[in-house]
Write a protein that binds this DNA or RNA. Structure first.
Length: 355
RNA sequence: UGGGGCGUAGCCAAGUGGUAAGGCACCGGAUUUUGAUUCCGGCAUACCCAGGUUCGAACCCUGGCGCCCCAG
């Protein structure tokens, strides 16, 4: 009997090609899509997001129909809100900068969506991620995608072994160009869509407006303070700022100023010249060791944000899932709330959250 | 109302006779499955106002207006 794979279809090119590849390889394939942003579920009750309910499913269904594969859709609006959006809120309110994609992958996409796929009878769950999984010595290893420019392993650092075990990434050994050409050759419908980007649940990209309307908050004012202690002016809420931010400070200063620190409790945004952004060490928490649990310190390369030029560092594991990271060269913009991922060549050793 | 200084875009600011640097902010675009960063482009027919000198003035002269500092 044919092995069955269920592909998480987004309606975009990548997941469509992933499904096509599996079909070619002889899998029995079905498509599965989740709805995570049906507007009526938001408290406002208004469609301020401009998202049509069920849009994701409609787009994905077109692809499934084209490929002539069965299609399923689930509504995870509630779960998504509880897991992803809630933490998105609380992180911003505590002065940190969340990375909702990582949370979504851990709990939603490779969590309940994957479970849904298994319930539907799938042997494996597939997505269009540019990353690779290898099974060695009873361990499922996560590696970068071949296409360095598109590698998405960063967003997957918190996946558990069971999750990796049931996953397949058909695009991991392809480049984006190859995928595009395949899509064209297959005559996939409307690949005119631009790359998916920005926070998926905030289509207008106005995350500040989203926070304010959803949380009913409005400018808990405080001060923007220079690292020297000099008060430079007021701000309308610390959640509007993130470490490393340069634009939007609204302050006239001889040199470009960057956000160095956000102190939600003191309602203070500390800014300074670029040099103050440079940091030699940091601590991460809730570390997930993908390759193998780390017992002693190790040399590796650390990426502190998506598409960050990974930096040589030494990592020292601590208790409670924490670890100290010491960079060889100072890094600009170490931002609490962002993920830090440790690599050795293509291999993802693991990753944690910057404190 | 004695002395001194200043007045250039939303802000800071260069330019002291030859036809308005730069930075911040702002706007647009590129890059990007998070937030940022980064990159490219745009952004004063105009230099407090009014006269004058000059081929030519933000820059020189005269007179106003406004602001700041030190003295009353």
């Amino acid at each position: 009997m044919k092995k069955k794979a269920i592909v998480a279809l987004s309606g975009g090119v990548d997941s469509a090609v992933a499904a096509a590849i599996l079909l070619e390889q002889g899998w029995e394939v079905a498509g599965l899509t989740m709805e995570v942003v049906t507007p009526e579920c938001f408290e406002t009750g208004q469609n301020r997001l401009g998202v049509e309910s069920g849009k994701a499913s409609r787009e994905a269904r077109k692809v499934a129909d084209f490929l002539k594969i069965p299609f399923f859709s689930v509504n995870f609006t509630k779960e998504f809100r509880e897991k992803v959006i809630q933490s998105f809120f609380s992180e911003y309110l505590s002065g940190r900068t969340p990375n909702p994609c990582v949370v979504c992958n851990r709990f939603i996409k490779f969590g309940i969506l994957q479970e849904e796929a298994l319930k539907l009878g799938a042997d494996l769950f597939a997505t269009g991620h540019y990353a690779r999984i290898f099974h060695e010595n009873d361990r499922y290893l996560l590696k970068k995608g071949i296409d360095e420019k598109k590698d998405q392993s960063y967003f997957l650092f918190s996946l558990q072994q069971e999750q990796l075990a049931r996953t397949i990434f058909p695009l991991g050994s392809l480049t984006k160009d190859e995928v595009r050409r395949m899509a064209q050759k297959m005559g996939l419908p409307s690949p005119d869509r631009s790359e998916s980007q920005d926070i998926c649940f905030i289509p207008d990209q106005d995350y500040i407006g989203f926070l304010e309307s959803e949380l009913h908050i409005k400018g808990t004012a405080g001060n923007i303070v220079h690292v020297s202690g000099k008060v430079l002016g007021p701000h309308q809420g610390t959640y509007r700022y993130t470490v490393g931010q340069r634009k939007g400070l609204g302050i006239a200063w001889p040199q470009p100023l960057y956000v160095i620190r956000v102190d939600a409790e003191a309602k203070q945004v500390v800014v300074g010249e670029k040099m103050y952004l440079e940091v030699f060490e940091m601590q991460v928490q809730d570390v997930n060791w993908v390759a193998q649990p780390l017992t002693g310190s190790i040399r590796c390369k650390c990426r502190i944000r998506y598409r960050h030029q990974e930096a040589p560092a030494s990592v020292v594991p601590l208790e409670d899932g924490r670890a100290d990271v010491f960079f060889d060269e100072p890094q600009a913009g170490v931002t609490p709330g962002q993920g830090a991922v440790f690599y050795q060549e293509d291999l993802v050793l693991g990753g944690g959250w910057i404190r």
